[in-house]
């Protein structure tokens, strides 16, 4: 057996992360490694989509100081496309309703996995980050056979599925993250 070292414990991202890790979004004079727009460069293959949502606390309020990171494959299901990093980061609190919005492409299937996006949730009051996923409401068949989604209790599956917004002039999905309560989002061990 290999000797395992204790990993470094997690701590909250705190209330004052904005100038450090999302400075462009919040108007500080510093660059950030990734933004909410994953398709800034034009020659990226795939269907353009927008994912809009809020992070909601146990009292039902939209949280104004959370950080959402997404990590996804390209339209062919690859995580190593030099033209598409596949990572996005956004803070909440810069829009009136505290919502966030990612501009990206719809990821492809990966083997037998349904199209999905990995999500990391960070905020003041979260001592260890939370890990979840976004699946898509218009991928019913693929979702029914997804090896991770089949492990989720039926009554909670909807918390992982972004709902396609009808009658939008663009392809838009609604995906709220509920930290607690009746509709608490399914979070995964990591």
């Amino acid at each position: 057996m290999e000797n395992k070292t204790d990993i470094t414990p997690s701590q909250t991202v705190g209330p004052f992360f904005a100038y450090g890790i999302t400075p462009e979004q919040y108007g500080y004079g510093y660059t950030q490694i990734a933004t909410a727009n994953l398709v800034a460069s034009k020659n990226i293959q795939g269907e353009r989509i927008r994912i809009v949502g809020r992070v909601v606390d146990g009292a039902g309020n939209a949280i104004p100081d959370a950080v959402i990171e997404i990590w996804q494959a390209d339209s062919l299901g690859s995580y190593s496309n030099p033209a598409f990093l596949g990572f996005g980061r956004v803070g909440t609190g810069t829009s009136v309703d505290n919502s966030f919005a990612f501009e990206t492409i719809k990821p492809g299937r990966i083997g037998n996995e349904a199209p999905h996006i990995n999500v990391i949730v960070l905020m003041r009051g979260l001592l260890t980050h939370a890990f979840t996923r976004i699946y898509f409401s218009d991928e019913d068949v693929a979702n029914q056979n997804d090896p991770l989604l089949v492990t989720v209790p039926v009554a909670r599956k909807h918390t992982l599925i972004a709902q396609r917004v009808p009658q939008s002039h663009r392809v838009e999905y609604q995906y709220d993250i509920f930290m607690q309560g009746e509709r608490e989002t399914v979070f995964f061990e990591f």
Binding site: Q180, F187, E189
Partner: peptide, 9 residues
């Protein structure tokens, strides 16, 4: 009011 309360999957 912010920490998840249900067991992680």
């Amino acid at each position: 009011l912010r920490g998840p309360t249900k067991p992680l999957l």
